[in-house]
C-alpha cells in the first residue's frame, strides 16, 4: 500500500472521504448527470452509466452550459452528489453549484483543484480523504 499527500487549491472547502471515480474526459453535468440517481447519462461519455454518489469525483474539467451549477445543486438536494470534486483546472460553474448548495442545504461536496501532474497520480478506486485545509490524502492498495 502506498499513500500520497497533495495540497490542493480550495474553491469550496469541506471534508470528505470516498473512493475515487476518475473520468477520462470532461463532463457537462447539464445533460450529463441525472440528479435523481447520480448516474452519468451522457451516452457519448466514456464513463456513462457510472454513479457519482458518495465518490470522490475526479474530472479534468467541467464542460458546457452554466446550468451545470443547477444540476449539482439539485444532486445535493436529492442526496446523489459526489463526496468531493477534484479537477485539474479551475471550474467556476462546479464551484458555484457547491457554493449555493452550502448556503441552501448546509452541505456541499468540497471542490478542489490539483496540479495536472498531481491529479494524474490518483487512480480509479483509490481511497481519498479531503481535509478542510485542502490537503488530499490518497491511499492505493495495489502500488
Amino acid at each position: 500500500m502506498s499513500a500520497y499527500t497533495f495540497q490542493a487549491q480550495v474553491l469550496v472547502g469541506g471534508t470528505a472521504v470516498g473512493q475515487a471515480l476518475v473520468l477520462p474526459e470532461p463532463l457537462s453535468l447539464w445533460g450529463g448527470l441525472n440528479p435523481e440517481t447520480g448516474e452519468i447519462i451522457d451516452r457519448r461519455h466514456p464513463s456513462a452509466g457510472q454513479v457519482v454518489t458518495g465518490r470522490v469525483l475526479l474530472l479534468p474539467a467541467g464542460r458546457g452550459s452554466s446550468s451545470a451549477s443547477s444540476i449539482l445543486l439539485e444532486a445535493v438536494r436529492q442526496g446523489t452528489a459526489p463526496a468531493a470534486i477534484i479537477t485539474a483546472e479551475v471550474d467556476g460553474i462546479l464551484a458555484l453549484g457547491a457554493a449555493v448548495a452550502r448556503e441552501m442545504y448546509d452541505r456541499a461536496p468540497p471542490v478542489l483543484v490539483l496540479l495536472p501532474e498531481e491529479y494524474a497520480q490518483i487512480h480509479e478506486g483509490d481511497q481519498v480523504q479531503v481535509m478542510a485545509d485542502g490537503l488530499v490524502v490518497c491511499q492505493n492498495n495495489e502500488r
Binding site: 440528479p35 446550468s67 443547477s70 444540476i71 445543486l73 439539485e74 445535493v76 438536494r77 449555493v100 448556503e103 441552501m104
Partner: peptide
C-alpha cells in the same frame, strides 16, 4: 430547472 432553483429564489 428544478425545485432547488425555486427554493433558492424563495429563500
Amino acid at each position: 430547472h428544478g425545485d432547488s432553483g425555486l427554493a433558492f429564489a424563495e429563500r
